[in-house]
Amino acid sequence: MILSASDNAHEASERLAHTNLSTKVYEFMRSALANGELLPGQKLSARTLIDRLGVSQTPVREAMLQLVAERALTMHRNKSVTVPVLSADDYIELRDIRVALEGLACRCAAENVKNADLVALGKLHRQMMVAKRGGDYRSTMRLNREFHLGIYALSGRAELVALIESLWVRTGPYLNLIYRDTVPLPKTHEHDGLLAALKARDPELAAQAVAQDIIRGGEPVVNALRADAQAQAESA
């Protein structure tokens, strides 16, 4: 059968619409993972996503499969899909890769940052601290991600930022472990040192500041994962 030009245009339009839907679901799920809205081991319901996003099963399935391929989700033998469960060693490995890549991004950002950027970043940090003091940890995690990615975008290195974002997607669900136990807020925050380094246009100081933020900020996660592993071993 020979298709007319209008038929070809219609098919192309349908393919584009389908691609856009798959991308919409994919980006929604990536953001949910990176912002800590999903928990380690949580089973994902395709029906819930279909109802929430108003799409068919196909784009949801395609988005899930793409995230499985990226190791951001796990598919089991019964075809169920869950958020991966990392060991402390797994998490530390990803954390160390983050330190290297985000340090590079901060070095580049320190060379490109403008005063207007510093104002915008300072505002994001203050909003994050207000949310944290108020116990709104979902907003805290979202604003923290916006703060960091806002800095990395200043690096001007799109491929580097894409790699960093993929690591945040994989480690984001574990941000919830930071707030599992209530701890007093410190007088200073690692973001203060990072902002100071950017203001000074000091690449090495910026890299050191973000490394400190990642490592210190992740200590509760590592401690919680080790405690959970020990508890499981003792109950076995």
Rank of each mutant, 00 (worst) to 15 (best):
A131Q: 03
N144H: 13
K114Y: 00
D181T: 14
A46T: 07
T58E: 13
E102R: 02
V81A: 01
R133A: 15
E70K: 05
H191Y: 15
M141S: 05
S235Q: 15
M1R: 10
E165T: 06
L94I: 08
R216Q: 10
M29P: 11
K43Y: 12
K132C: 07
M64L: 12
N20I: 14
T58R: 11
M128N: 03
I164S: 02
T48D: 09
V183H: 08
T48H: 10
G41A: 04
G54P: 03
M64K: 07
V222S: 06
S6K: 14
Y137W: 13
L3K: 10
V169R: 02
P59L: 02
H148C: 09
D96E: 15
I97G: 01
V183D: 13
A229N: 08
A211T: 01
V113A: 01
E14R: 15
R180H: 12
R126N: 12
V83H: 01
L149V: 09
L104K: 14
R15S: 06
L16C: 03
L154Q: 02
T74K: 12
L194G: 00
A229E: 12
L194Q: 03
N115E: 13
A9N: 11
A236P: 06
N115L: 12
T23A: 09
V85F: 00
E190V: 11
I215F: 03
L39K: 11
S155C: 10
A105K: 00
R138F: 01
A153E: 15
Q212N: 07
L163T: 08
D192G: 08
L44S: 06
M128V: 01
H191W: 15
L16Y: 08
V55L: 07
I214C: 06
A109N: 01
R71T: 07
G54S: 07
V221Y: 02
L65C: 04
N78D: 15
G36R: 03
S6H: 12
A206H: 05
A229M: 10
F28S: 08
I164V: 11
S155F: 04
V161H: 03
R15E: 08
R15M: 04
P40W: 00
R157L: 12
A120K: 08
A5F: 13
I50R: 13
S6V: 11
V130S: 11
T23K: 14
P186Q: 01
A110F: 00
K123Y: 13
L118C: 04
P173C: 05
L3N: 08
A236F: 12
E93T: 07
E27M: 08
V25G: 03
I2V: 14
E11F: 14
Y174S: 07
R47Q: 13
T19I: 11
E146L: 12
A211I: 00
K24T: 05
D7H: 13
L65G: 03
H148Q: 14
G103R: 05
A63V: 03
F28W: 11
E159G: 06
